[in-house]
C-alpha cells in the first residue's frame, strides 16, 4: 500500500494515531495527550473537585494508557478506554478520601419511588442556604457546583453524557454498567439539576 509522511495529525482518527504510537512514534503519544488532556482532566477535576489532585490523576491515567498502548484493541473506542481509566481513577480516589457523596436523590441503586425517597438525604434547608449563597452567581457556575453535589455515580454519567457528549451506549461501556442503569442515573441527575434551576427561577 502506498504511504506518505504525516503532515497533519488532525486528519488521522484515534485508531491510526494509536497504531503509530504502538509502532514507537513519540509524536503519536503526544498527539493522544493533546487530544484528550482537556476532556480527561475536566472529567476528573469535576469528579474530585481539586485541581492539583485532578492533574495527578489525569497524568496517572495517561501514563497507564500510554504504557499499555500495545494492548489496545481497535474494536474498542480509544475514548471509551481512556475515559474508563480516568473514571476509575477518580472513583477510587473519592472512595479513598471518603469524599462527600451527598445525594440529593437517594441511593443510586434504589429502584422504586419509595426506595428513592427512603434513601434521599433530607437537605432541604441546606439546599436553600446553598441557593441563597449562589443566587448572584452565573447560572453555569451554579450548575457546575450542583454537579459537584451529585452522587459520584450520577456525576460521571451526566458529565459523560451532557458535557462530553458521549452516547448512552459508550457510557455504559466506560462505566461497565447496564444501559438501563446509565439512563436512570442520567435522568436522576438531570432531575436534580432541573429542580435546582426551577428553584433559582422562582426566586
Amino acid at each position: 500500500m502506498s504511504e506518505r509522511p504525516v503532515t497533519d495529525w488532525r486528519e488521522l482518527v484515534d485508531q491510526d494515531v494509536v497504531r503509530l504510537a504502538a509502532l514507537g512514534h513519540e509524536a503519536a503519544y503526544r498527539e493522544l495527550i493533546r487530544r484528550y488532556e482537556r476532556p480527561v482532566f475536566s472529567l476528573i477535576y469535576r469528579m474530585v473537585r481539586d485541581r492539583e489532585l485532578a492533574e495527578d490523576l489525569a497524568q496517572e491515567t495517561f501514563i497507564k494508557v500510554l504504557n499499555a498502548i500495545d494492548s489496545y484493541r481497535p474494536e474498542y473506542k480509544f475514548s471509551s478506554w481512556i475515559f474508563k481509566i480516568a473514571n476509575n481513577a477518580a472513583i477510587d480516589q473519592l472512595r479513598r478520601r471518603s469524599l462527600d457523596t451527598l445525594s440529593l436523590d437517594g441511593s443510586p441503586h434504589a429502584e422504586s419511588a419509595e426506595a428513592i425517597e427512603a434513601t434521599t438525604l433530607q437537605v432541604g434547608d441546606d439546599r436553600e442556604s446553598q441557593l441563597d449563597e449562589v443566587a448572584n452567581r452565573e447560572l453555569g457556575a451554579m450548575i457546575e457546583e450542583a454537579i459537584g453535589q451529585l452522587r459520584p455515580e450520577y456525576r460521571n454519567c451526566i458529565l459523560l453524557r451532557h458535557v462530553e457528549g458521549r452516547p448512552y451506549e459508550e457510557i455504559a461501556e466506560i462505566l461497565d454498567l447496564p444501559l438501563g442503569t446509565v439512563k436512570t442515573y442520567i435522568h436522576r441527575a438531570r432531575n436534580e439539576l432541573r429542580i435546582l434551576l426551577a428553584a433559582v427561577r422562582d426566586e
Binding site: 503526544r30 495527550i33 482537556r38 477535576y45 500510554l66 450548575i143 451532557h162 438531570r190 439539576l193
Partner: peptide
C-alpha cells in the same frame, strides 16, 4: 439544563502536563 451543561468550559491542565506524562 442540557444547554448549560454543554456550555461548561473545558478545564485545562498545566502547561507541563504532557511533558510530565512523557
Amino acid at each position: 439544563v442540557v444547554y448549560h451543561l454543554g456550555a461548561l468550559p473545558e478545564h485545562v491542565p498545566s502547561y507541563r502536563f504532557a511533558d510530565g506524562v512523557m
